[in-house]
Simulated scan of single mutants.
Amino acid sequence: MPGAASAYTGGKHPGAKVPCHFCPIQGIRILDTSNLSFYLPLQRPPGYRPSQFTIDDLPLRTPRQYLSQARQVDLAPTVKRQGQLSKRYGINYTPIMSKAPGVTLPFSSPFDFMHMLENTCSNYVGHICGEFKGLDAGRESYILPPAIWKEIGRATTNATSTIPSVFGRRILDVSKERTFFTCESYLVWCTLYAPILLRNRFSRPKYYAHWMLFVSIINRCICFRTTKAERDQLRVDIKKWYQEYEE
């Protein structure tokens, strides 16, 4: 994330054109708007150049390639050329951490899973309650009616009165108090509350199945023990969930 990218990898922030220090994926801007942010859909909307990558083909940068690109940025003959290379590679400079024994960039600086989890959970909840960046459901029908969403919020607060604190902090009304949700709040609500509160709420069973796949992925990602076979299946399920999410 921003701190790790700046301090340990010399890389760009998450909103850059090339934001990932592990792979060379490039973001796109929303056409015909003043929004300067870059987004990373693998399945591009109509009117955009198709992505050169797929969920099954995201090539990793090698340590040699990463440091070579960083060095090109460092040795650029002009400030303008340096800016061009920096934008192309998603790297601002050669990080001092590259000199530390035992450090292999970019892999010695993994992603911040906590915030990745929090952002995905909050975005997902925003989708199903119809409050995600002004977007509607498109060709699908996964948005829960306001009356049902308010009922889910009331059930959330009512349930906290009888759930032991050992399972996590007290959860506020998810329908109107998400501003105060922390990563832990989202984790507890998504994995412990939502499987019950969202059951039989959607217009089609596939939306609940998609949510439960997400919950399963979270639970397996935070397991203390895992086998190679389980990790292989986890990769398959993450790809499946991501493709369904983009649809």
Rank of each mutant, 00 (worst) to 15 (best):
E131T: 11
G15A: 04
V236C: 08
L36S: 14
R64K: 09
R204E: 15
G47S: 05
Y89K: 06
A100K: 12
W241L: 05
K87R: 14
S185V: 01
Y242I: 12
R199L: 10
A7G: 09
E140K: 09
S216D: 08
L135D: 01
Q52H: 14
I171Q: 12
R88C: 03
C183Q: 15
D237L: 13
I30A: 11
R154A: 06
F107Y: 11
A229F: 11
D237P: 08
E246H: 07
M116A: 08
M116W: 07
K87P: 00
T160E: 10
N158K: 15
P106G: 03
F224V: 02
N119G: 12
R178S: 09
C121W: 07
D173G: 06
K150R: 15
T78Y: 00
K12A: 14
R178W: 06
H13G: 15
A137I: 01
G130E: 03
L234H: 11
I143S: 01
I238Q: 04
Y93W: 08
Y48F: 09
F180V: 00
E151W: 02
K240G: 07
D74E: 13
P77V: 03
Q69D: 13
R49S: 13
I28D: 09
V236E: 13
P110Y: 03
Q243D: 08
P14D: 10
V18W: 02
I148C: 04
P59G: 09
G168R: 07
T162D: 12
K228I: 15
D32S: 11
Y142R: 01
H115S: 01
H21Y: 04
S141N: 14
K228W: 07
I143G: 02
I25M: 11
T226L: 08
L117V: 11
I217D: 02
S175Y: 10
P106R: 01
K17N: 05
I30F: 08
N123W: 08
I238S: 02
W149A: 09
R220I: 00
R169H: 11
I25T: 10
R170A: 00
F214S: 03
H210V: 00
F22S: 00
N92L: 13
